[in-house]
């Protein structure tokens, strides 16, 4: 089962839920299959992500994935965040990836066995990708 303690705990985290009023980037993401929506707020200082928050509803996987992503990207440069994104994407699509780089994101490794849930995991990452483009 993909509902590990880690994922259950992170799905309930409230720390990163909310708006950033002076956000540099606001991006809306949508999972077409279930209607889940996420709004991602990024505060950039030059090239560096100094704060991030989100609003929206979603399933356990997408909520946990969003929380873990935000925790991991705060403090990283755009390039570093994009590198993380590429590896997270590769992990979930069953391709080669850098384990060391992913850290706690590895907790989602088994989600790759459930094609319909891959979209739930990717929702925040796809939104981040659009935001950083």
């Amino acid at each position: 089962m993909i509902y590990s303690e880690f994922i259950m705990d992170y799905s309930k985290l409230k720390k990163f839920v909310g708006k950033i009023e002076n956000a540099t980037k606001v991006e809306e993401g949508k999972n077409l299959s279930c209607g889940d929506e996420v709004t991602l707020y990024l505060l950039l200082d030059g090239n560096r992500i100094v704060d991030a928050k989100f609003e929206g509803h979603g399933c356990t996987i997408s909520q946990a994935s969003t929380n873990v992503m935000i925790e991991q990207i705060i403090g990283k440069t755009k390039e570093e965040a994009l590198e993380l994104l590429r590896n997270a994407e590769n992990m979930i699509l069953g391709k080669e990836f850098n384990e060391k780089l992913l850290g706690p994101i590895l907790n989602f490794y088994d989600v790759k066995n459930y094609p319909m849930r891959v979209k739930c995991f990717l929702l925040p990452w796809k939104t981040l990708e659009m935001a950083l483009k």
Partner: peptide, 13 residues
């Protein structure tokens, strides 16, 4: 509980 979570657990368990 989100519908995807409901369906997923019903299937798996």
């Amino acid at each position: 509980v989100h519908p995807h979570d409901v369906s997923h657990v019903l299937d798996q368990m």
